[in-house]
Design a protein around this nucleic acid. Structure first.
Lengths: 325, 325
DNA sequence: TTGTACGCGTTATCAA
DNA sequence: TTGATAACGCGTACAA
């Protein structure tokens, strides 16, 4: 066999099979019926030439789609440190994969501006603005935003931050808590909504401080506050990871949870290294991911999309109890 | 201004600017000098038409590259559950991003076979075979493999599993341990190498069992073994997460670590929720990621690549101590 | 420094 | 069911 100087193209296959280029194309794509005999001839010619199928680059240009969806999550090591991020990403990826679409990780910058993306998912709760958005909008790239912020022309997938936080607050109030503090996130849509929900019940809730959803960060934030003498009987956190940090830090100071201090989280993720189930607001992470993926598919196909608001559910665990009187 | 029926193309820009198509191309790419005056005309024509720059799809076809690198990590929720995965992924992503390359997450299947990938990183330690490999090889897509298995034509980035495991074993031996058990991984290159390294010092090390690098999995594996009466004074794990699981499970049974049982891990990741620093084999995760990214860049550019073997380092923490006599 | 012409490899339209 | 032909939008020799 003669070593081919360049990769075989579909035209080579067609020539070898003795059919026209368009027939060869149909034999591969199956977009229109082709007789079994000719398809066979085409495929065997392809095998003989070592042709590995239509060049994706050419197909993409022709069809005007790349098959790649970007997801902006910020620096990966921080984005995925919170276990709440994974189930959603997993669900998105699975749904898209089924459609032959790939998921491309984007930082926050616009280094990926030159990549052909069919759509972009924006999933950085902690950021309010996004420089790359104007670019994407100008190029008519569909954008699906997870948990705000709100930009014109985007589709939004959100959860009931406010209602969830209020339900949690009521639970604490029912337990007799009157002085409550909160560990919050950087200013953002979820942060504002959840805090507002909390204040429906505890208008005067004290803010311990803001940090990302990271165990160590939460510990460093709450430690000094605990030392200073909290003056609160319960701490409401904006994530389970933060809540776990508060639990660990409280215990380190000899406080009993929930005897001396009730601690609540948000998200509903597993914390197997904590011998305690957190009281938390469970959000449907996988369902959120599927909703995101569906919105992406709709936007790509031009179907109308509606924003989605997913319900949350209070789950009472062992980290909250009656207020110490 | 008249609403354009279709997106403007570079030809439109060139026409509006009164220059040729190739000149417009040069004005955007900067591949050859263009007079400041013409560039200015081209850019203002582009702005006027709302042209957002060269179509990436067309550019990709023309240049034969997509700017996208695939990374096969398996199901995301399991792949990133282990904190050891993130620093590497982060490093890979950062280096590639700097070159304008994007990172696309692939499952283990071949659903992404139709995507134009410039290279693929294979990073599923637990898998021995990969159906998609033959496809990629046939299409001449460069493959960089992290920690085996070994396929012809791939570039390998690996760490000193064997030496690290042996160093750890020596440490235990020096502490007087003679009866050692190991929690291992599914059969794989790292598993074989590390276990062989361990057996350099403890040829008769007992195998507790194999599980993935997951806290709960490790707990469920080691629990019954502990109940049964271990008959070992130290447990060597194949990951820090596994080791943490063993520590928690041992404590739950009233055993002191390291008083009653020494526990060692592998990786060197942070376990902030454990009030104990694990004795472990620290691998250079970020450096591994950079090596992977460099190999990818070299393979894409056609530069020769050499396999990389990165050193590891024993870090003695508080989870190992003298053997109980 | 700029313009001309061609090709990248495919899919879609239309007619046969 | 098949074939001829025209895009898709751009980069790059080559010539001017």
């Amino acid at each position: 066999m003669s070593g081919p100087s360049r990769a075989p193209t579909m035209a080579d296959v067609a020539a070898t099979a003795g059919v026209s280029l368009s027939t060869a194309s149909l034999a591969f794509s199956g977009n229109k019926p082709v007789s079994a005999a000719t398809r066979e001839r085409v495929l065997s010619a392809a095998a003989q030439l070592g042709y590995t199928g239509p060049n994706p680059l050419a197909r993409n240009l022709r069809q005007g789609r790349s098959g790649v969806v970007g997801i902006a999550v910020g620096p990966l090591s921080t984005a995925f440190r919170d276990p709440a991020a994974l189930p959603m990403l997993d669900a998105v990826s699975q749904v898209l994969e089924r459609e032959g679409l790939g998921l491309l990780l984007m930082g926050e910058g616009d280094e990926h501006a030159a990549l052909p993306l069919d759509a972009v998912i924006y999933d950085i709760c902690g950021r309010e603005t996004w420089d790359a958005y104007a670019d994407l909008a100008a190029r008519d790239v569909p954008v699906v935003v997870v948990e705000g912020p709100s930009w014109p022309g985007s589709t939004f997938i959100d959860i009931e931050h406010h209602a969830g936080a209020t339900a949690l607050a009521r639970h604490l109030h029912d337990l007799g808590h009157r002085r409550v503090a909160t560990v919050t996130l950087a200013p953002s849509h979820p942060q504002r909504e959840r805090e507002a929900g909390l204040r429906e019940v505890f208008p005067d809730a004290a803010v311990v401080g803001a940090c990302e959803s990271d165990l160590t960060a939460a510990q460093e934030l709450v430690g000094p506050w605990l030392d200073h003498g909290p003056g609160a009987t319960a701490v409401v956190c904006q994530s389970d990871v933060q809540a776990a940090g508060v639990v660990l830090e409280a215990r380190r100071r000899g406080l009993d949870v929930p005897g001396d201090l009730s601690v609540a989280g948000f998200d509903g993720v597993a914390t197997p290294w904590l011998d305690l189930e957190l009281t938390t607001v469970v959000q449907p992470l996988a369902e959120k991911g599927r909703a995101v993926a569906r919105a992406v598919l709709d936007r790509i196909s031009g179907t109308d999309t509606a924003d989605v608001l997913l319900p949350v559910e209070l789950r009472v665990g062992g980290s909250t109890g009656p207020a110490r009187s």
